[in-house]
């Protein structure tokens, strides 16, 4: 049987214009052999979820440095549930205060990566925690 190639959507929700981290993550994922759908800046949760479904990704990797994580991320997760697409792993990185992390995890965000995390660590986490759709 042929093998699945991992597909990941990398994007930036909200009005946040800091895209260096997202670009670094996109490149690291490509170099790890994943197919990255890079949707760029200013995505609404609706756009992210709809694109993720059309692209049949295994993982949604969002980058947020604006401070709006507590509203945007749960919104994405709710929409995924609504569309029956919550088998897609939702992860996030960026400037996110320690104290917000437990709340995000409780809201269905599988992992949170803060500044300074090496891309090796992030790629390894994806390899260990994201299994391509059967």
């Amino acid at each position: 049987m042929a093998e699945r190639k991992l597909r990941v959507l990398v994007g930036k929700p909200g009005l946040d214009g800091h895209d260096r981290g997202a670009k670094i993550i996109a490149r690291a994922f490509r170099d790890a052999g994943f197919e990255v759908i890079y949707t760029g800046l200013h995505q609404t949760p609706e756009q992210i979820v709809s694109a993720s479904i059309q692209e049949d990704v295994d993982c949604i990797a969002l980058s947020i440095l604006s401070g709006a994580h507590n509203t945007l991320l749960p919104a994405v997760n709710e929409l995924l549930k609504e569309k029956g697409a919550d088998d897609i792993v939702l992860m996030v990185g960026g400037v996110i205060p320690e104290e917000d992390i437990p709340g995000l995890k409780a809201a269905g965000i599988r992992e949170v990566f803060t500044p300074g995390t090496s891309t090796e660590t992030i790629v390894a986490w994806v390899r260990d925690n994201v299994t391509p759709h059967a």
Binding site: V36, I37, Y38, G40
Partner: peptide, 12 residues
Amino acid sequence: GGAILGDRIRMN
């Protein structure tokens, strides 16, 4: 063997 697929950015 990986790829960055970026065409979608323009069609968001």
